[in-house]
Design a protein around this nucleic acid. Sequence first.
DNA 1: TTTTGTTTGTGTCATTTATACACCAATTAT
DNA 2: ATAATTGGTGTATAAATGACACAAACAAAA
Lengths: 224, 224
Amino acid sequence: MALEDYPRPSVTVDVIIFTLHDDLQVLLIKRKYPPFAGMWAIPGGFVQEGESLEETALRELEEETGVRDVYLEQLYTFGNPGRDPRGWVITVAYFALVPCTAVDLQAGDDAAEARWFSIHSLPLLAFDHADILPYALQRLRYKLEYSAVGFELLPETFTLTELQTAYETILDETLDKRNFRRKILGAGVIERTGAYRTGEGRPAQLYRFRDDAVAEVKARRLFP
Amino acid sequence: MALEDYPRPSVTVDVIIFTLHDDLQVLLIKRKYPPFAGMWAIPGGFVQEGESLEETALRELEEETGVRDVYLEQLYTFGNPGRDPRGWVITVAYFALVPCTAVDLQAGDDAAEARWFSIHSLPLLAFDHADILPYALQRLRYKLEYSAVGFELLPETFTLTELQTAYETILDETLDKRNFRRKILGAGVIERTGAYRTGEGRPAQLYRFRDDAVAEVKARRLFP
DNA sequence: TTTTGTTTGTGTCATTTATACACCAATTAT
DNA sequence: ATAATTGGTGTATAAATGACACAAACAAAA
């Protein structure tokens, strides 16, 4: 029995794009055409032949935000019947973490508009996207506890207070300053740049993420 | 642009079926037809329209092993171009844990033969299945450390020694008996049945898994 | 029936890890 | 100069982990 003899679904890749702007935010696009015209949705597109799923995700990501070289991770594949009124559509969901800096919003072909939404004030979502989004958030929070993924949302250099604030924003809980610093510094994943960020109070040491530390850290838990 | 205007891939669901028989074992099927005729492969099949991915996985699982009501979890979706010589095929991989008891092997239509293989002596695998399998094993080991998934591989009732042996076999490391017992019992996920297993030496208490403990335990880590 | 062999079941101490908590230092704004 | 603001540091207590050895209960063999 040949491949073509089986009915085939359409396959899309949706990318939940997170960033930090005061709050933890996700990028959504306003649908221009039916179904769900006028509603907000997670950006995504059809997989093309000869393209890997990750390539599809990266392509979507670049189309929507103009960014490349960001953290991208496959989340889950959704294939329940009836999830797309147009027919049989299976969606591979990815989530991406982009730094608040250097994002250039540009609506794709299918979208009327692209906007960041705080995860605390999401609009009604198209398709089954209201199920997918909490899943992505949960995964992000979970990963934050045992990997160094938090840095992906910050610019190249950052202060420890900024890093802690990022963690607190994502986890939606407050952390003890001294314990946070001890753990982060003890993990050896960041290093001083030598520069300082000056501002209102005392200037703060600037740190950068140690790229060579990624692999070894993946196994450990930073915040058990 | 309508759905049908996009080229569509074939989508299959592959299920890595684990069990414990002395060793940790996976069920593989010997392919009857090309491509890779005569080679061993992870059991799987095409998703049918109107069927969820999980239903496909359960169907495959039942076809191969005759079991229902087992632990099943989506693993990862593989879609690299060229992974199937027949054409464009995207595979959603699941992994299942079935108790060593009550498995009735029955080769499916596409298979010449189904066999359990120890994960320490795997044959050459068809497609990209040699990449998928270690991924499943890693996930299983990882999950074992923070959830109560180990019980899924044991019969209804079991002794603490049997449970410890299961953990040791999967993790491929030895554990301290007293520390193991302290942690398992402290987690409150199992309870005594009151019955004993008699055998060579001193009779052992039989335990059962507390079903109502699943949810609350999912969050905690049993073996950090 | 006594002895031997095999498996179960239990507690403590040392070490490590996590948590709670308060003040001085360095700078800018007034 | 003074006040206001943010950055940076250590210690003591509690909890979790890891290492470790022997008596109890039964079956098999003598």
